[in-house]
Computed example of a mutant assay.
Amino acid sequence: MSAHRQARLLVIAASLLGRLPWSWLYRLGDAVAALWRWQDARESRVARRNLELAFPGLETGQRDALHRRILRTTARQALETLKLWTRPPAANLALLRERHGEDLYDAALAAGRGVIVAAPHFGNWELLNQWLASRGPIAIVYRPPESAVGDEFLQQVRGVDNVRQVRAEGPAVRQLWKVLKDGGAVGILPDQQPKAGDGEFAPFFGVQALTMTLLSRLAERTGAPVLLAWCERIDSGPGFALHVEPAPAAIADPDPQAAVDCLNREVERIARRDPAQYQWTYKRYTLRPPGSGEANPYVKR
């Protein structure tokens, strides 16, 4: 069976799951989180290790409570996203109970200089993608899964009007440069670890993390403004607040170290709004600074 057909079957399955009422979907997410914790699954182990690294001052009980909240939020977000992917975008955008900075994005886009949206893994970034697409065409940078079926699945569920998915590979820079030069919008998830040699180390929650320079290079060389954006959960049900803010000028500093320092400070600031809504199940610190003697913190010794 072709990757396209297999992905189509996954989309159908996601659609069936997405028909569950929100309350049922969230209960299922809570059950998944409990299973992760009981089995000490990868998600549970990685989140626990990240909390040890990023919040060393927390007492054991506090860290354990945050760990539980993170797993519950992560599982809910995964199921929530399947529902968002398989419903009309207009229905999803009705979940935005608050909208802050909407005019800021529209004005930046209308200025014709291009606009770069830095969207951390906070809240629900897939809902943010759909809001951005509702304002006009946008090129979204993504890291393709290793599986061809997984990649095809993303192409199908994210393939709403106005969204162009750009693989985070060699030709991406040229494609994004052209989009910005033509006055278009580019969306980047700035807190993914790049390949060795494609970034600079900078503090993130007090730990050195290899950080992409792609965003700052695009901003510095094109003059396109950078906006920070996220969709934050604001209640226990499916309610969100959209936030769009201007990034500090230092995020486009020609000195790459100054730029990534600024970028990580801003992502950390947003994540600290509600740490449970940040993606702590991602191995952010696997690569260590050259010559530091530090080992991959996720590998048991």
Rank of each mutant, 00 (worst) to 15 (best):
F240W: 06
V267R: 00
P88I: 06
L10W: 13
A75F: 03
P290S: 08
V163C: 01
G199D: 04
D255N: 15
G183P: 06
L109H: 11
V267L: 00
L132E: 09
G101E: 01
P56T: 02
G150S: 03
R42I: 00
P89H: 06
M1N: 14
L95K: 10
P137T: 06
Y298N: 05
S147R: 01
S236V: 04
P290M: 05
L104R: 14
A219H: 03
D182K: 07
L17Y: 02
P246S: 14
N129L: 07
A271V: 15
K83E: 07
R167I: 11
Q62H: 13
V160L: 13
V11I: 10
A202H: 02
L51F: 03
A133V: 00
T286R: 15
G159L: 00
T286E: 15
W22E: 08
R158M: 01
T86Y: 01
P254E: 08
V244T: 04
L17D: 07
H67M: 08
Y142D: 05
P275K: 12
R217N: 05
G237F: 06
E98R: 10
G29S: 04
L35V: 11
A252Q: 05
Q130C: 02
A13C: 13
F205L: 02
D161E: 15
K83V: 03
A247G: 04
Q165A: 08
Y142E: 08
G112D: 06
R284S: 13
E152A: 15
R49I: 01
A249T: 08
E232F: 00
H100C: 13
D235C: 09
R49Q: 14
V32Y: 01
Y105H: 13
D235A: 12
N92V: 06
N162I: 03
P246C: 13
S23Y: 02
R69E: 15
I188P: 06
G187W: 02
E146A: 15
L189K: 01
R233I: 00
E152F: 02
R273T: 12
G136D: 09
I138E: 15
Q165N: 10
R5A: 15
A172R: 03
R167N: 11
I251H: 14
Q62S: 15
G187K: 10
E102P: 12
Y26V: 00
W177F: 13
L58N: 04
L228N: 07
R99C: 05
G237P: 04
T211Y: 01
Q77P: 01
Q39V: 12
E126K: 02
A219G: 09
A31N: 07
W230H: 00
S216C: 03
D253G: 10
A118G: 04
R99F: 07
S134L: 03
L84Y: 09
P246Q: 11
Y282E: 08
W22S: 13
K283I: 14
A229G: 10
E80F: 04
A172P: 09
S134A: 12
I138R: 10
I234K: 00
L109T: 12
R288L: 12
A209G: 03
E80Q: 12
D64P: 07
L176K: 02
R284M: 09
P171C: 01
P144T: 10
H100S: 13
G197E: 09
A185K: 08
V163Y: 00
L104H: 05
T60L: 11
K181F: 02
A252W: 00
L104S: 05
A90D: 09
W24N: 05
P145C: 12
A33E: 10
Q277H: 10
W22G: 11
L228W: 06
